[in-house]
Simulated assay, not measured.
Amino acid sequence: MRPVTLALPVLLIACSGNAPAAQEAATATAANPAATVLDKPFAQTVVADFDAPWAMTFLPDGSMLVTEKQGRILLVSADGKKREVVANVTVDSAGQGGLMDIVPAPDFATSQRVYFSYSSSQIEGQSGGKAVILARGRLRPDGGGKGGERLGEIEALFNGTPLVPGNGHYSGRIAFSPDGKYLFFTAGERQKFEPAQDPKATLGKVLRLTLDGKPAPGNPLAAQGFHPAVWSYGHRNLLGIAFDAQGNLWEQEMGPKGGDEVNLILPGKNYGWPRASNGSHYDGRDIPDHTPSDGFEAPKVSWNPVISPGGLMIYSGNLFPAWKGDAFIGGLSSQALIRVDLNGTNAAKGDQWDMGARIREVEQGPDGAIYVLEDGKDGSQGRLIKLTPRT
C-alpha cells in the first residue's frame, strides 16, 4: 500500500451501534441498574481537554499519545500541560469513522514505532466503499532544528475487506501478543451482518497479523478456506481487546438492542453474530439468544440494557490492589466506568460508576492510576481524567 497522505479533515462526532444515530441514542440511553456504585472509591483529576478524542497510550517516559477523531495525533506531557501535534492523518470521519486506536510497538524503546488505525475510502488498488486501516509510523526528532517529535515514515499495512459503503462498525482496536511477535486487530462487520460469518471476508473478525501487517503463519482457520488472517469470527463491533497476565485474550463488543458482550477469544471459534445474540434487532425482530447447544462461543458477560462499551483495559497496577487482574470498560451511552471481575477464563459483572459523560477509552498509567478519556468536544466532555484512590 502507498504511504498515508497527511491532512486535517472535518470533524464529525461518532455514535455507536447499527441503528441510525438518533435511533441509537434514543434506544441505548438506559443505564444498567445492576452493580452500580454511586459513591466512587476514587478521586478524579482532570489532566487535559481534547476535541473528540478516541484513544490514548502511554510511552516509556510517561508522556502520552492521544488520537482525535478528525485525524490529529498529539504527543502530550505526563502532566497534560504540554502538547504537540505529531501527525495529521487523512481519515474519513463520517459517522463512526475517524482516527481510532494507537499503541506503541513492543520494541518501541529501540524502534520508536507506533501502530494506529483509522477509516478511509482511499485505498490503493481497491474501490467500492470504505475500510478500517491498520498503519504504523516512527516517532522521531523533528529534524528541523525546533526540537520536539514527529510521527514520520507512516505506512498503511492492512485494511479490512471487502470494502463496503457506510460509516459504522469499523472497530480498529489493536493488541500485541505477550511475546511481542504478533498483532491482534479487530475489524467490525460494518453494519452489514453476514460478513461476520463469511470465511473470505475479514469483517466481523479478530485478526492475527505479523508486525508488518501480513496474515500470521499458523492461523487456525486458513486450512478451512478462511482468509488467512482470521483468528476468530462471528463478531459485531469490537471496540476493545486486551491480554491478561495469564495470556488470555479478552474482547468486548457492542450488541444490537441489548446484548453487549465481553468474550474470551479462542482461536478458530465462532461467536455467533448475527445468528446468535443476547439482544434484538433495532426494529424489534428477535435474534436467537446464545444457548449451550447452538455451536457458537457464548459471551462470558452480557448486558441488557446496553452499556455501549468503549475501550477495554485489564488492570495490573498496585494503586488499586483489590482490582488487580480485573477488566475496565468505558461506557458510552451508559456514561459509565464498568469493572468486570476476571477469574482465570471466567468473568462476572463488578462495579459500574456513573461518570456523567460518555467514556471512550480506559488506560492504566505508569504509576497504576486509571485514566479515562471522555468522548466529547474540547470544552465539553472531551477530557482526560486521572483516577486515584480516595484518601
Rank of each mutant, 00 (worst) to 15 (best):
A336S: 15
D283L: 04
I154S: 07
V306P: 02
I123K: 03
F328S: 07
R285F: 02
I133E: 10
L249T: 08
P20N: 11
I385A: 11
I314C: 06
V47I: 15
V85D: 02
A7N: 14
V362F: 01
N343H: 12
G152R: 06
T388M: 04
A31I: 13
K69T: 12
V37K: 12
T67C: 12
Q44T: 14
G147Q: 05
P195V: 11
A55C: 11
G137Y: 00
T391E: 13
L59H: 08
V362M: 01
D375I: 03
N248K: 10
T57C: 14
Y371W: 13
G255C: 07
L134T: 08
K40I: 12
F176M: 07
D79I: 00
A22Q: 14
L8S: 11
W273L: 11
V132M: 13
A35V: 10
I265Y: 00
V66C: 09
P9W: 12
Y315K: 12
E68V: 12
K324H: 10
K192W: 02
Y271A: 13
F184S: 07
G350S: 08
A229E: 06
A28W: 00
I174N: 02
A31E: 09
S334R: 02
M1V: 13
R140N: 03
A175M: 01
A175I: 00
R136A: 10
F243A: 12
A105Y: 00
T186C: 04
F328R: 07
I370K: 11
S308P: 00
A109L: 09
Y371G: 02
